[in-house]
Write a protein that binds this DNA or RNA. Structure first.
Length: 347
DNA sequence: TCTGGGGTCCTAGGACCC
DNA sequence: TCTGGGGTCCTAGGACCC
């Protein structure tokens, strides 16, 4: 339920913000513990990881995987105070489905291992909606063809499925319902994008007001960008109109940038473009920074020095941005904010 | 009664290059 | 009646996940 509706129904409710920093710190703690058990650990989200256990049989003296899994569970509980569930199988699809069967609230003991060779039988106990990446849209199409459970799909041969769904999707689904998945466990790494967006309590139609919101969003995104030691080449502005139509505009710069001034200058142009194309009240506004790379060092020789009013950053821009970040870190995110934004982009 | 926030990945089409 | 072909980069939109 959206908070705005919850507060309408229950005006005295107290809203407690998500302690994002604390969640992220706990996530790192869990990962560190898991890394002792497997050579490759892939973070799938803030609270899910894949471990590739192949090749570790000798290390664990050929003990059954469920024994190792219970030791992982105990280690995480002991070191972080949090309870995890562990699913095991011969590929990521099986492991992901297995962990749902491992959860103690279903009466299990926190571990569920699917033995090699039993994957197809295991799959037959699921609905298609349980398969990762079978979302609401795909479910609807499949249901229209009379397929809701995995067993519904197994009645048909691949050529029939191809004629209904097209080659690519039919073959993808065919593999999944047979428990086949060849995606590898990879440790991954840096974020691919950083975004901030906000749904307004009331739709906003005023351009100046939208630009103020844009500035607030960009200030947060840019500060996190620099906090991670990254720079961005692509800036995206997203707007959701009152009728829920979502539009976006983006621009990729030749050089990666980090400063509020340049990021905001591009973002404002993109917002103006979106507003010029369709000017109706907006319910959401967002910014995203992508094409990320390591921030080229501030002390690096810069071939071009550009002034305000261009898309290039000056040394002054970068020093200023980082000084502001330090003040915010010490005194809080609201301790120093842009007073206003002039039309030429200076603050 | 409308539908959160932060992400990833995929696709289609266009520009441009050799 | 014909308008090559393949690769890369970019934009816009959409599906999906937690």
């Amino acid at each position: 339920m959206p908070i705005s509706r919850a507060l309408k129904l229950c005006p005295e409710a107290l809203c407690v913000p998500v302690p994002r920093k604390a969640c992220s710190a706990k996530s790192h703690e869990i990962r560190s513990t898991l890394e002792r058990f497997a050579p490759v650990v892939e973070g799938a989200s803030i609270d899910e990881w894949y471990l590739d256990m192949s090749g570790t049989e000798g290390v664990y003296h050929d003990e059954h995987l469920s024994v190792t899994a219970h030791r992982m569970r105990d280690a995480v509980q002991g070191e972080t105070g949090l309870t995890i569930s562990v699913g095991g199988g011969t590929n990521k699809l099986i492991a992901k489905l297995a962990v749902e069967r491992a959860k103690p609230k279903l009466g299990a003991d926190g571990v569920h291992i699917v033995e090699p060779g039993t994957e197809e039988d295991f799959l037959q106990t699921f609905d298609l909606a349980d398969i990762p990446l079978v979302g609401p849209r795909f479910q609807e199409r499949l249901a229209a063809l009379g397929m809701v459970r995995v067993t519904d799909v197994l009645q048909y041969d691949i050529s029939t499925l191809r004629s209904w769904l097209g080659k690519r999707e039919a073959e993808w689904l065919w593999d999944r319902v047979h428990g086949v998945s060849d995606s590898v466990v990879e440790s991954g790494g840096e974020a691919k994008s950083i975004s901030r967006d906000e749904t307004f309590p009331q739709d906003i139609d005023d351009d100046r007001e939208l630009e103020r919101e844009l500035l607030a969003l960009m200030t947060r995104a840019a500060s996190d960008l620099r906090g991670d030691g990254l720079a961005a080449r692509t800036i995206t502005v997203r707007i959701r109109d009152a009728d829920f139509r979502t539009r976006s505009a983006r621009r990729t710069l030749v050089e990666p940038v980090v400063t509020d001034r340049v990021l905001m200058r591009v973002a404002r142009e993109l917002l103006r473009k979106l507003r010029a194309a369709r000017r109706v009240p907006a319910r959401l506004l967002g910014v995203a920074l992508s094409s990320l790379g390591q921030d080229p060092e501030a002390d690096q020789l810069r071939l071009f020095e550009a002034g305000p009013g261009t898309d290039s950053e000056t040394e002054r821009d970068r020093v200023l941005a980082k000084a502001i970040d330090r003040v915010r870190e010490r005194f809080g995110p609201r301790s120093i904010i842009p007073a206003s934004l002039a039309d030429d982009g200076t603050e």
